[in-house]
Design a protein around this nucleic acid. Structure first.
Lengths: 347, 347
DNA sequence: TTGAAAGCGCTAACAG
DNA sequence: CTGTTAGCGCTTTCAA
């Protein structure tokens, strides 16, 4: 696949040699200037820096990496950027890295753990010094490679530290419990779920399982005829509700795997004249900005996407630069009760 | 800022030497199988590959880059990932690169061209072989560095090839014209605009200018008292409409800089009992998935985010691997007339 | 405070 | 088809 096509000949770039020659010093000194070593005489440093700036010298990162065994590069492997909530997280992650002069490598796995494993490999070859992953569910080969490489990593979006992996996230289970409890407290007994696809997605699985368990614990069974897994798209949410409506198996409340699905369900409900929340309560997950503005505003879980991105970056940088262990960190993902939930209609 | 903290000592990684020794061949041969050179005897190749797989050997990318002058890395510098439309574009870009075994470096400039210049530098040091940028507006230092490095780059989201930069995008001007023409055809004469912030954002500027010009060309002046620049957030859109309503300077139509703003304007209008589109027509820009589902569905411009991402990747890869020049490429960004636009109310 | 020189792990002639 | 070897550009002892 990768053949040896030579790069088009670009004018040879300036090298440390050149700078050294121009400044009348050795490459060692130039290197010291570059690395802000304190043992360079100020005037020498200034002279060298002036020349570097003037000629637009760019140190060769690969050469530095090879010699110093440092890349100042961190990776993130995420399921997708098409879901705004991940994009938000990565945005925060990148900004934090950027502030510390680290560079971000991004790979999208499309919810496929095998693709993820391949991408991890690529990143390790690139010498990433830290890695943000999503979820605790990764292939054995992924975990093995991570361990062999001895690279810092953080699993985000989940919090199950007893699994033995560094977690910076929130409890999908607890969040789902809160949703169920809320619905139960409102008096709902007929509850279905439009979940995300659980294959290779432990967050989606946790949510679905937690809903089932919590209901069961309260003597209620999740209405399996009103439960399905769909991918995260508005159209999917709409179609799901349409199906339930047409099969006449609408519960009084639908828990959605995320806000995008919830939005679809809500829109379809409105389109069909199903009153929300009077006839149907709906809950989401993520707290996308939109959910608070739309009418009815969507009851949802406030997923701390930015916090996780920022915290993951801090933890990774602390591990790299100060050799600190990554501390597990649990963020609260509170239920935001808004307008799509109400007591079930009892006619 | 960057001091020399040694990496925590990880068990030394396997090197090509080790593989060579284990396989009883020279490093040259190992290198050849790594690079899929055809002149390795099949059984030797198999043996070497088996050993590499078994020991989990990871070639050292920095060393390869240094020796071969190839990094198989491409960069993208974008204003933000918090806007879903950019995230979508980058997602497509990454998937295309991934398929060709390239790795993506991502940097977020937060709409700041000076930050962008710094990030570009970082990427050039990292040896990116290609670069996706957004817009044609970049600092002189950015363009100079790009040229000196001789790296392939593509400016996306705009199409003004006469400026002399490779463009893969669409004409923001034409798109804005289409919006204006549509509104004019409906009979609107009082038109305002809630634009994006034009500082360091030529897309936003093109849109605003084009609206002004097109109106002027038709003998109509953009209602400056109903025109402002806000950042891309629903709340900003809402606040903008609130301000106009309270100052009693509502036009009959509002052109919004993007869908997020349009959504905010729409939601605020509904909240205030301003009938859309009867009392107020609204248009957006981007065609976020949501806009077609919400009621009233938003009239908007279909921005080819995925197409641009994919095409930029293809063009960059073609330039790298087959030495092809980047061909400018203009995508159509059609107006999608939906439900938020109608003839002005004439009472 | 500076310079000389030995690598870092790999590729790419070149020779065989 | 395979091995030898000279770098790639930089960091980092070690001496001075």
């Amino acid at each position: 696949m990768r053949d040896q096509i030579p790069m088009s000949e670009t004018r040879r770039q300036l090298t440390q040699q050149d700078i050294a020659r121009l400044a009348g010093v050795s490459t060692a000194t130039v290197s010291r200037v570059l690395n802000r070593s304190s043992l360079v005489k100020p005037d020498v440093r200034d002279r060298v820096e002036a020349i570097m700036a003037q000629r637009g010298y760019l140190p060769h990162a690969a050469a530095r990496a090879l010699a110093s065994n440092r890349t100042y590069t961190v990776g993130a492997i995420i399921p997708t950027l098409n879901n705004a909530i991940f994009a938000t997280c990565i945005n925060a992650f990148e900004r934090e890295l950027q502030a510390m002069d680290y560079t971000l490598l991004v790979a999208v796995s499309n919810y496929d753990l095998d693709i993820e494993a391949v991408q991890l490999r690529r990143m390790l070859e690139r010498g990433v010094e830290g890695l943000l992953l999503v979820g605790n569910d990764h292939t054995a080969s992924t975990y093995k490679a991570l361990q062999r490489a001895g690279v810092v990593y953080v699993n985000t979006w989940v919090f199950d530290p007893q699994l033995g992996h560094p977690n910076i996230g929130f409890s999908n289970r607890e969040a789902a419990y809160a949703v169920v409890d809320h619905l139960l407290a409102l008096g709902h007994r007929h509850i279905g779920m439009i979940a995300g696809i659980t294959t290779g997605n432990d967050r989606a699985r946790y949510r679905l399982e937690a809903v089932r368990e919590r209901l069961a614990k309260n003597g209620i069974t999740l209405r399996e005829d009103a439960t399905m897994q769909v991918s995260y798209a508005i159209g999917e949410g709409r179609a799901a509700l349409a199906r339930l409506a047409e099969q006449d198996c609408l519960p009084t409340a639908l828990i959605c795997g995320n806000d995008v699905i919830a939005l679809g369900v809500l829109i379809e409900a409105i389109a069909r004249g199903i009153a929300v929340p009077q006839q149907l309560s709906i809950t989401g997950f993520d707290n996308l900005p939109l959910t608070e503005h739309i009418r009815p505003a969507i009851t949802t879980i406030d997923v701390p996407a930015q916090d996780m991105g920022r915290a993951a970056a801090s933890a990774i940088l602390a591990a790299i630069e100060r050799d600190e262990r990554v501390r597990d960190r649990q963020f609260h993902a509170p239920l935001l009760v808004r307008e799509t939930t109400a007591p079930p209609f009892t006619g």
